[in-house]
Every structure is written in structure tokens, then in C-alpha cells.
Amino acid sequence: MNEERELDLERAIKEVERIIKELERKDLPLDEALKLFEQGLELIHLCEERLKQARLKVEVILKKGEKFELTNLDLAKELIKNEGERP
């Protein structure tokens, strides 16, 4: 998944919480309230979708001189074991 486009759960949940707080204002015009309500529901839905697809991604940073390489955990373990000098 594209990092940039990935839903920021924290921000989304905070946004929903902000929407709820906004909705608790009594003087809010109805059409605005309905708009906020729909936005909130949409965000919750997106969060749930995001959680359904959630999968932890683990990468290991390997330093090669001044450069960095990202590799998966098992491969990194192998590489480091073979080097024998890394932890």
C-alpha cells in the first residue's frame, strides 16, 4: 500500500472524536450536522476497512557503509549470522 495514501488511524480517530465534539454543539445547523455525521461514519468505516486489511510490516535496516538497505527479518538474520560480527 502506498505510504502516503495509507489512512492515518490516529488522525482519523481524532477527527471522528472532533466531529462528535462538534456535533455536540447545540447551535449547529442541521445540514452541517448531517454532513459531519456522514463524514464521521465514513471515517469509521475507513478505519474498520483499514483494520481488516491490517498486516504488520517488518523491515530491517542494514547499514552498508554510509548507505542503508531495507530487508526482511529472516534474510537479515541470515546475513547477520553469516557476517558473524553483528548482533
Binding site: R50, L51, Q53, L56, K57, V58, V60, L62, P87
Partner: peptide, 20 residues
């Protein structure tokens, strides 16, 4: 650490191996 992280919402963990 990863065991708990796997049960969660699916973040990305960048491991920097060090001598601890």
C-alpha cells in the same frame, strides 16, 4: 515486541539491529 504488534492495526516496524 513483534508478537504484540502483529495483533494490532498493522503498522510498519523498522528494526535497527544493534548489540544490546
Amino acid at each position: 515486541f513483534l508478537k504484540v504488534a502483529r495483533e494490532s492495526y498493522g503498522a510498519k516496524v523498522l528494526v535497527y539491529p544493534v548489540k544490546i
